[in-house]
Amino acid sequence: METAITVAVVIFVIVAGMVLIHRLNAQHDERIGAFRYSDALPGIGRRTRKGPRATVPKGPPADATHPEHREASR
């Protein structure tokens, strides 16, 4: 008789745990669904570009103008 009660209690605890976990997962999914990750934060909208993009200066890199410094460091 005690064994049957113990088995019933263990099964009940397992089922109660499964129901609790299922409800917590559903609640978590609702929170994730309500939060829009792709939207910008309020007040921090995406800026529109009013002019052309900044360009990288054309020409040799700064360290290429003095090759003797590059050779001496080796």
Rank of each mutant, 00 (worst) to 15 (best):
M1S: 12
E2A: 11
E2T: 14
A4R: 12
A4N: 14
I5L: 14
T6Q: 09
V7S: 10
A8V: 04
I11W: 03
F12D: 01
F12V: 06
V13E: 07
V15R: 08
V19F: 06
V19Q: 06
L20G: 15
L20C: 12
L20T: 14
I21R: 00
H22E: 03
R23V: 15
L24W: 09
L24Q: 15
L24C: 14
A26K: 06
E30D: 13
E30I: 09
E30V: 13
R31S: 13
R31Y: 11
I32D: 01
I32Q: 11
A34N: 15
F35E: 10
Y37K: 01
Y37S: 07
Y37V: 07
S38F: 01
L41V: 06
P42E: 04
P42V: 01
I44H: 12
I44W: 06
I44K: 05
G45Y: 02
R47D: 12
T48G: 06
R49K: 15
P52A: 07
R53P: 12
R53L: 09
R53T: 09
A54E: 05
A54H: 08
T55S: 02
V56N: 10
P57V: 05
P57A: 00
P57M: 08
K58A: 09
K58H: 11
K58W: 04
G59K: 05
P60D: 01
P60Y: 03
D63K: 03
D63S: 11
A64D: 04
H66R: 07
H66W: 08
H66M: 01
P67I: 03
P67D: 09
E68G: 02
H69E: 11
R70Q: 03
R70D: 08
R70I: 02
E71N: 05
A72C: 10
A72R: 11
R74E: 13
